[in-house]
């Protein structure tokens, strides 16, 4: 039971409360740069997810033998190794998406979300939890990427999953949905400034939901237990 609660907490932290994209605002550079389409976002999200799981597991495995003084370089080397693996795999199997992600694929090495998790969680916790934490943080990051990619793709060119076959193989070309028919592309949504503005709106929506929930909880609490009136007794001795 205790284990389950811990995993649940990890999931909530990664997906919502401490989401690397929306709350920690880590890894903004790839987040904003490659989310012009859902396909790109999905590609980068998956790559980051895999790297995050791999690096979390490895860091957690070696945590006993890494001296404190040089832990950061060691973490970076581990992450870089995983990024190289992923990059070579994508180069081999999903060449189209590998090309459209360009420099942002190798740049996952510098994604602070990954080294942040290695430093803050994986280097202090056993393998299983670290792996699960990597999965949840990676999913949280990937979800933000995908939502942002969807918003920008719909606004920018009116489609969803344009070019999904580059990532998922030939069958995926049926996934392409034309949501709106736009005569003109809305270039702002595709350009980086549009990403910043859309990101701002996403964070605002998240904060709004949080606030609503807080209010609801407060309301419930006050209904369940009528607030006890505290009287201050003043004694003049």
């Amino acid at each position: 039971m205790k284990m389950n609660a811990e995993y649940k907490e990890l999931a909530i932290q990664g997906l919502w409360k401490n989401n690397p994209g929306l709350v920690q605002l880590l890894g903004l550079c790839p987040l904003l740069a490659v989310t012009a389409t859902v396909t790109n976002a999905l590609g980068l999200g998956l790559a980051t997810l895999l790297v995050l799981i791999g690096s979390n597991v490895t860091v957690s495995l070696v945590r006993e033998w890494v001296p404190k003084e040089i832990r950061i370089p060691v973490f970076v080397l581990i992450i870089a190794a995983f990024v190289t693996v992923i990059q070579l795999l994508m180069n081999a199997y999903t060449y189209g998406i590998y090309q459209s992600l360009g420099i942002f694929l190798p740049l996952i090495v510098t994604n602070c979300a990954i080294i942040g998790r290695a430093e803050a969680y994986a280097s202090k916790n056993p393998v299983k939890q670290a792996a699960f934490d990597g999965l949840m943080m990676g999913l949280g990051f990937a979800l933000v990427l995908i939502v942002l990619g969807a918003i920008r793709e719909v606004l920018g060119q009116g489609t969803l999953f344009d070019g999904a076959e580059l990532l998922l193989g030939e069958w995926a070309s049926v996934l392409r949905v034309e949501v709106l028919h736009l005569d003109n592309k809305f270039l702002l949504a595709i350009l980086p400034p549009g990403a910043f503005i859309a990101m701002g709106f996403l964070i605002a929506v998240k904060n709004y939901i949080d606030e609503k929930q807080k209010e609801k909880q407060k309301l419930q609490q006050s209904q369940e237990e009528p607030s006890t009136i505290e009287r201050v007794r003043v004694n003049f001795d």
Binding site: N184, F186, L187, L188, A189, L191, P193
Partner: peptide, 10 residues
């Protein structure tokens, strides 16, 4: 500027 960047043709 937003319009000029987004809809250069129009």
């Amino acid at each position: 500027v937003m319009l000029l960047v987004s809809f250069p043709l129009q």
